[in-house]
Amino acid sequence: MRALIANGVRIDDTFAEAFGMRATALVVTADSAAWARQAAATMTGFATSVIGCGCEAAIDREIGEKQTPDRRPGVRVLLFAVSTSELQKQLAARVGQCVLTSPGSACYAGLEGEESLKLGNALRYFGDGWQISKRFGGKHYWRVPVLDGEFLCEATTGLTKQAVGGGNLLIMGESARSTLVAAEAAVKAIARVPDAITPFPGGIARSGSKVGSKYKSVKASTNDAYCPTLKGAVKSALDANVASVLEIVIDGLTPQAVADAMAAGLAAIVKLGPRRGAVRVGAGNYGGKLGPHHFHLKDLLP
């Protein structure tokens, strides 16, 4: 593998291999920014990977009270799944259990799409006949009476089939601490990129996986080539000086959003340099045959 050095950080000549996904977006508002964040954090909890959670979801960005439909503080949430039906199922379950239940919350479409998913149209039955439909300004809302007043929810939200999941960066450092510093800097930079999320805890995955396993029933297992403790035992991808690896997984509403997010993360890691952060950055792929989207690291360097 040829390598490129940027500010002392080795950039592997490789690419992240990503897949097409179905995605939607929501705007969740509440009386305070803290409660809007709370509702969004609850509905995007346990949504790190489609393999075990049904969907991947996270907060895209916070929205000031001047920009939300009801002029209250809000948060934009993105949800990704492998099929429209699974996305619909996850959306209704998560909004129903986590946003409807959150004090003072309201929920709006966060995406305009040619196709739509049921939002309020799926949740209105909670009103037990007392739900109120309101149409004005080209929008359709449902008002559901709840204990603190009303839960207001837009009837539908948009669906995109152009979404991409699985953009990634493998961040390698000489110590666990410096690797984490580099990964945190990258997540912070990616957070500023619109239409892209990092669904793992704090944006970082420490258990990067490969497809398959020696066990028949296990679909994904630890990426042994990048485990520092397995150097020597397996065909390792790591150099002698790499002591820790962290992965950032990126989902975006468009391929461009994923490319922008990977570029932003890469720029932050390169800027930090090898002494304080990572010594090497790679990316995960399956040889390029499975995923239609290839994001080459050398094209994304600043």
Binding site: P69, D70, F136, G137, Y141, R143, L152
Partner: peptide, 9 residues
């Protein structure tokens, strides 16, 4: 009610 805020806008 939030609905009245939307109506106001």
């Amino acid at each position: 009610l939030v609905a009245l805020r939307l109506l106001a806008t």
